[in-house]
Design a protein around this nucleic acid. Structure first.
Lengths: 242, 242
DNA sequence: CGGGACGTTGACGCCCGTCAAGACATGTGG
DNA sequence: CCACATGTCTTGACGGGCGTCAACGTCCCG
């Protein structure tokens, strides 16, 4: 049962946060500080001392690494309920940058206090553990994508992921998918170029799979086609490996 | 300071294992069972219940995911000192397969016992935590590779990584790099094809960067050239990002 | 209204995946 | 020890996907 698990695990994480005992939740609220950011604002700079841990309340955040040649690889987008900055590498330094894609409200905890709290609260410890494990499986899913999928498959998968995110958030059926990020961001995420993103969406449009109205709003006309392009996330029943 | 950290962290992990208190180490040895495997032997099957945790004593192990279309993506190679099976996803089911690349000796622990032991030994807990964190940064490094590096850069990086592994293991300077895995394995790891691996090595040979004698033995003639091809792992001092 | 950021579309070329045919190596049985 | 089969590496030929450069269209904001 490979790949395609990233959404399940993330929402599972969110549910688990709510399952913490009341006292811990109260303490969490006490020591946290709300942060509001305009779109485009830097949140974390790679290499800075890892002073804070954040959770996203509203908006979308991009997490990225900068490359020597000036490019950047977006390693993930964060949505409400996701955590930012949990990955503690040895030096207690952020291993990545992060910035607000849209206007964002975050909740910030001083790392020290949060770590102390997690010593007492095993539930919180497990939460962080799960967060890292989630990030790992997500990263591995992306490795599969980048290594073996065509750009078209990646874009289709991305659209479906965005759609599922909004369906999960609103709980309702979706036909208009909001794409808050710029094409260049998506490109940096999927390991391709902004032009190719544009071209791919254009062919989807020409094939009547989507309808593009206002930028940042994509209407999906043919879900089945999108999923077909995805290339079959999961193996069929009784399929033979190798 | 992006990328290129994978080796440091791995060896740091090994050192930390030795830093466990004696009682824990004794218990660890008690409940472990040695396993010897011939090359090619399956160790873990994706989807099976995660019964054991292993550590590699000798040999090389490949960890992989199988794709619906029958291909496989090797997510990593494990060398002596590395752990296998620590990443337990929610269902306590292995999220990947593993097989012996060379003849291997492993040490196996029943998962339950090891988890119970880690409840008492915070050092062990931190060890596992670090193991997962390492895997995460390794996965993210690979994302950078796959997204933005040419095959030539990937192969050069791979060679250097192998060389560093052996230098680290023997402690001496190296000029002959042993490549125990098949080209197809390397290809599945780097997200390319066996033919392209062969071709790339051939051009390295023609450019007098390496010398190829017996298969599985590569003599590096020009380290500087290899590193140059790598594409500059780290940013230069004072370099400007974007 | 002018300028800047972003998206779209075209043209071009090359990297690399794929198919196919040999070249070696290794092992097995006669 | 040789003949043969099997697995692996090498090399060639071919073509398509997609990265890059460049020009243009569109939207927004001062």
């Amino acid at each position: 049962m490979p790949t395609g698990t990233e959404n399940m695990t993330r929402s599972a994480l969110r549910r688990r946060l709510e399952a913490l005992d009341d006292k811990t939740v109260a303490r969490l609220n006490e020591i946290s500080r709300p942060v509001d950011l305009p779109a485009g604002q830097q949140i974390i700079i790679e290499g800075d001392p890892a002073a804070s841990i954040y959770s996203v309340q509203q908006g979308v955040v991009s997490v990225f690494k900068l490359l020597p040649d000036g490019r950047r690889q977006i390693t993930g987008f964060l949505y409400p309920g996701d955590f930012l900055g949990v990955t503690f590498n040895l030096g207690a330094v952020y291993g990545y940058g992060a910035e607000a894609v849209t206007h964002c409200s975050l909740r910030a905890w001083p790392r020290g206090a949060l770590e102390r709290l997690s010593e007492e609260a095993p539930g919180l410890r497990r939460l962080f553990m799960a967060e890292i494990a989630d990030e790992l499986t997500e990263a591995q899913d992306r490795i599969l994508m980048l290594a073996h999928r065509s750009v078209e498959e990646r874009v289709a998968t991305f659209l479906l992921t965005m759609a599922r995110h909004q369906a999960g958030a609103t709980g309702t059926r979706i036909e208009v998918v909001e794409i808050p990020m710029r094409w260049a961001d998506i490109a940096d995420y999927l390991g391709t170029s902004a032009e190719t993103i544009s071209r791919t969406l254009s062919t989807f449009r020409d094939r009547h799979i989507i309808h593009t109205g206002k930028r940042s709003e994509i209407v999906v006309l043919d879900w089945a086609a999108l999923e077909a392009i995805t290339g079959g996330d999961r193996p069929e029943e009784g399929e033979i490996y190798r």
